[in-house]
């Protein structure tokens, strides 16, 4: 097992947050590890490596994906978005701002996964009900907040997005 496991590194080219990154990855290298350790994008967090907690969620072509259940070599040609992209210009994204306004985070470890999962929801459904928000976020766990602040944040972000959409351009 181990003799073959270290062999066969491959050159991979990933599009992460709008930039092309080239690196060497074993076939077994997880996307989460490649993002964190090779690309030093440490905002993506790993909580279980079992695909359960959702902390490692990133967007792949706009869809939320568990980066701990994905191999880096599978992502050739995909468009990957991590938490670092949300505030690329140094200002908080409206969803991030809403999390701050509603105390939607405490220790902050699960937060990047929630932010990206919420972003995917609001892009698909800009005006979700509370029940829809809870259903959509039920694959991410948070041990600190009891979720109330998180659910309120998504409601607030949706309301703000709606306000903006209503404004004349």
């Amino acid at each position: 097992m181990s003799e073959t496991a270290t062999a066969g590194r491959r050159l991979v080219e990933l599009n992460v947050n709008g930039m092309s990154h080239v690196g060497l990855a074993e076939p077994r290298t997880l996307l989460s590890d490649f993002l964190r350790h090779d690309l030093e994008l440490t905002g993506t967090h790993v909580g279980c490596e079992q695909g359960v907690c959702g902390a490692c969620t990133v967007l792949v072509d706009g869809e939320p994906v568990r980066s701990c259940l994905t191999f880096a070599v599978q992502m050739e040609g995909a468009r990957i978005e991590t938490v670092e992209a949300l505030s690329a210009d140094g200002a908080l994204h409206p969803i991030q701002e809403a999390f701050r306004n509603t105390h939607g985070l405490q220790c902050g470890f699960c937060t990047p996964g929630f932010l990206l999962t919420a972003k995917a929801l609001l892009e698909e459904n800009p005006s979700p009900s509370e029940a829809e928000i809870r259903e959509h976020l039920s694959g991410n766990v948070c041990r600190c907040t009891g979720y109330q602040g998180i659910v309120d944040a998504v409601l607030e972000a949706a309301a703000n997005g709606k306000d903006q959409a209503d404004e004349p351009r």
Binding site: R36, T42, T44, G108, F109, L115
Partner: peptide
């Protein structure tokens, strides 16, 4: 403390 946590810029032990 929120902005660094929200931006993915906080440094946890594995970082």
């Amino acid at each position: 403390e929120d902005p660094r946590l929200l931006m993915g810029r906080a440094r946890f032990i594995d970082d």
